[in-house]
Amino acid sequence: MPDPTTPAMLTDTRREALSSSLAQVNRLVLGKETAVTMSFVALLADGHILIEDLPGLGKTTLAHAIAATVGLDFQRVQFTSDLLPSDVIGVSVYEGSARRFEFHGGPVFTNVLLADEINRAPPRTQSALLEAMAEQQVTVDGTTHALPDPFFVIATQNPVDLSGTYPLPDSQLDRFLLRLTLGYPDRDAERALLSGSDRRTLIAETVPRLGADDLLALRQAVTAIHASPALIDYVQALMGRSRQHPGVRVGLSPRAGLALLRATRAFALLQGRDHALPDDVQTLFPLIASHRLVAEADASSDGLAASILQAVPVD
């Protein structure tokens, strides 16, 4: 009997739910179709997203819209300069009646975690998410606690040249599958925002289109998307070129290559295909590579990603 989670055999109900989820988020976040699509790529690829842009451009609205649409448990943490790691992951409290310490989980124990303005917290607090994002677990006082499945982090950050921000360390950036920017809305989208209903009200009235079982089935289908040996050769060539580029001080790791393949498969699924294409890789490479590349002092990581793509031909 065929596996019902392979791309060709996904139920019509789940295909329709995925399509309607994309459409619903696009109605809530106007004029940001590419960012919405890439957010779903990360969701389906079992990754996390970092949304970086100026305040007031819809970063938090996008996170809320996704959380409301997928219909999973949701927690929001506002990162500030006085936030402690225990405020995120939880703390052990002595219970007098039981005469022992009991662990009380923090907001990280959820399906969808919005880490809002993550770079306004100092590095010690940022590091509270390292184990959670990489291993889907947290360790407190020598005891490991599993996080819910699925677990999806949507982090927002302001540009590092704004006051009151701390740059994310490389190890933290590497936990994010994709880094997105939103930019200003176009004229039509901004007009609709100004003359339409309040976004918070619309999100509060949102009906979930997906559930945990749907999402896990879609993630399983992503793993079945075919990536040909030639496509894997292309990904490997991009990784190799990143380590040899004169403007790059630290190139992409094998983990970045695995992330690129996962995202490529998820993007192909969203396009209704059962196989990944080099065009998918080229679309996703800048979003996956730019925040992982460590550039020389006079180089831009965004420009380097584009340069690496241009330097590696598609056979």
Rank of each mutant, 00 (worst) to 15 (best):
G164D: 09
P148L: 01
A155H: 11
P167G: 08
S171Q: 10
F152Q: 13
T144G: 04
P159N: 09
H145C: 04
P169N: 02
D161K: 06
V140E: 03
D186Y: 04
D161N: 15
D141M: 05
L180V: 06
T143I: 15
L180Q: 08
V160F: 06
F151R: 05
D149W: 02
L178A: 05
S171C: 12
D186E: 07
L178V: 11
V160T: 15
V140P: 02
L162N: 00
G142R: 03
H145D: 07
T181G: 15
Q172M: 15
T165K: 00
S171P: 09
Y166H: 09
L180A: 01
V160Y: 08
G142H: 02
L178R: 07
Y166C: 00
L178E: 10
S171T: 14
G142P: 00
A146H: 13
L162F: 14
D141L: 07
T165A: 01
V138G: 00
S171Y: 15
D141N: 14
L177I: 12
V160W: 05
L162I: 03
V140S: 04
D170R: 12
P150I: 06
N158E: 01
T165D: 00
L182T: 07
G142W: 01
D174S: 00
L168Y: 00
Q157L: 01
G142I: 03
D188N: 12
Y166L: 06
R187S: 14
N158V: 09
S171W: 06
R175S: 09
R187D: 13
F176S: 11
A146Q: 15
L178D: 10
P169W: 07
P148E: 01
D170T: 13
A155L: 12
D170G: 12
A155K: 12
R187P: 01
P150H: 03
F151S: 05
S171R: 13
G164N: 14
T144F: 13
D188T: 15
T165V: 02
T156F: 04
L178Y: 09
S163W: 10
R187Y: 14
H145P: 02
G183D: 01
F151L: 07
Q172D: 02
Y184T: 11
P159W: 08
R179A: 02
Y184W: 08
H145L: 11
F151A: 12
T156Q: 07
A155Q: 10
F176K: 07
T156A: 04
L182I: 12
R175G: 08
D174N: 11
T165L: 00
V140I: 11
T143P: 05
R175Y: 12
L180G: 02
L168E: 01
V138M: 02
P150L: 10
S163M: 14
Y166R: 04
F176I: 14
D188L: 14
V160Q: 11
P185F: 11
N158R: 05
A155R: 10
Y184D: 08
V138H: 00
R175D: 06
F176E: 10
P148F: 03
L182G: 03
P159H: 08
L162E: 03
T144R: 10
T139F: 14
D141T: 08
D186W: 02
Y166Q: 06
L168N: 05
D170W: 10
T156L: 05
T156K: 04
G164V: 09
T143V: 15
L162M: 15
L180I: 01
G183I: 06
Q157C: 08
A155W: 09
V153A: 02
T143L: 13
T143S: 14
V160M: 03
V160K: 09
L177D: 06
L173S: 04
Q157M: 11
A155I: 14
P148N: 00
V138T: 04
